[in-house]
């Protein structure tokens, strides 16, 4: 049962990473990065590292997303390449 959940989380991890790299709108990239961080946190917790997963959930899914949005606010929203 546990390996089904982990394979689902792995697929979600790769999907959010590709979305974060390929999106033209940088807000989409920031939200996908936050989703990536939360998926990594769930994977850490499924491996038994509760404290690492908690830190990753708070920082990777919360604070980093807010800082990315603040950085986009000061620069441009669309990517050039």
């Amino acid at each position: 049962m546990n390996w089904i959940l982990e394979i689902f989380l792995d697929i979600l991890l790769i999907t959010t990473a590709i979305v974060a790299l390929q999106a033209k709108d940088l807000i989409t990239s920031a939200v996908a990065t936050a989703a990536f961080g939360f998926t990594v946190a769930l994977l850490f917790i499924s491996m038994g590292a509760i404290d690492v997963g908690f830190t990753e959930a708070v920082v990777g899914a919360g604070i980093v997303g807010v800082f990315f949005v603040a950085a986009i606010y000061r620069t441009t929203r669309k990517t050039k390449d």
Binding site: D51, F54, T55, V58, V59, G62, I63, V66
Partner: peptide, 14 residues
């Protein structure tokens, strides 16, 4: 228990 000053402080900041 899991958690601590850094995680709680980051939640308060959030």
């Amino acid at each position: 228990s899991p958690g601590g000053g850094f995680q709680g402080g980051a939640l308060l900041a959030a």
